[in-house]
Simulated assay, not measured.
Amino acid sequence: MTASKSAARREVGTQLSFALYGATSRLIKLHKPLLEPLGLTFPQYLVMLELFSEAPRTVGDLGTNLAMDTGTITPLLKRLEVSGMVTRTRDRNDERRVQIALTIAGEALREELWLVTDKIKTACQLTDEGLEALRDTLNAFARPASE
């Protein structure tokens, strides 16, 4: 490898970490004005989308699917419970497990939150194919098959 190629690889703008950080920041900023009127943060939005796909779910299952540890997801779920979006109930068969379910108010946000998703897709100016390819690449990076 030539010295110039080696130096170019050390430029901040060529780093994968820099690109992922920038993309993540932009995505969160795009969501913020759409979620604030609904009283949700970006991580809460992700939890709600997970619950729309299947509920009730355990805290552990949600944490695994969202790549959030218990120390991150538990306070988030408590705030969603206080806001009336979800219920948290101990499993009768195993009190260590907590089931998370949508309330009527949480379920009522379903269509509005899917509209947020559509608006973000439009703002990112990606085709359906481009969006799927990017998502699949990022999922493969975030959760390698070897793990």
Rank of each mutant, 00 (worst) to 15 (best):
P75S: 03
T41Y: 10
T41P: 03
A7K: 12
P37I: 10
L30Y: 06
L20H: 09
R135T: 14
G13R: 00
L20E: 09
E11M: 02
T137C: 10
Q125F: 05
D128E: 13
A55C: 07
E112W: 00
T58Y: 06
V86I: 13
T24S: 15
T117E: 15
I104T: 09
L113S: 14
E95P: 03
E107T: 04
L102M: 12
Q125S: 15
L138F: 10
R26Y: 12
L30C: 04
R79H: 13
R135G: 00
A142R: 14
Y21L: 14
T74C: 08
R26G: 01
S6Q: 14
K121S: 01
E95A: 15
A8W: 05
G106D: 06
R57A: 09
T103N: 10
T41M: 09
L76Y: 08
S6C: 08
T72I: 04
F18Y: 11
A145Y: 08
E147K: 15
D136M: 07
L34Y: 00
Q44S: 04
N93Y: 08
M68Q: 12
A105S: 10
P33H: 02
P33A: 02
S83N: 12
L134D: 06
T24R: 02
R79S: 13
A8C: 02
T58L: 00
P56I: 06
L126P: 04
G71H: 14
T41Q: 12
K29E: 13
L131I: 15
A108V: 04
P37E: 15
Y21P: 00
L109M: 14
T2N: 10
I73D: 13
T24Y: 08
K121F: 09
S4I: 03
G106Y: 03
R143Q: 15
F42E: 08
A101P: 00
M48Y: 03
T24M: 01
A108S: 13
T117H: 10
M48T: 02
S83H: 08
M68P: 05
L115A: 11
D61N: 10
R92M: 13
L49I: 15
V12R: 11
V12S: 01
G130H: 00
S6P: 04
G39L: 06
I73M: 08
F52Y: 11
D118W: 02
K121A: 01
L30F: 03
G84T: 03
M48Q: 03
R97A: 12
A3R: 09
R88S: 05
P56R: 05
E54W: 01
L80N: 01
M68F: 05
T74A: 05
L113F: 06
R92S: 05
S4N: 11
A3S: 13
F42W: 10
L126H: 02
A8K: 15
L102Q: 09
F18H: 14
E112Y: 02
L115W: 08
R143S: 11
L102V: 01
V47R: 04
P144R: 07
N65S: 15
T137F: 11
L27S: 04
F18S: 06
A105N: 12
A23T: 08
L34N: 03
N65Y: 14
D118P: 04
K121P: 00
L35N: 07
K5R: 13
L77Q: 05
T87D: 07
P56C: 12
Q44E: 15
F18G: 00
G13P: 00
V59A: 11
E50S: 13
R57I: 00
G39K: 11
S4L: 10
P37F: 07
V59G: 11
A133N: 12
E54M: 09
T72V: 06
T137Q: 13
L38W: 07
V116N: 07
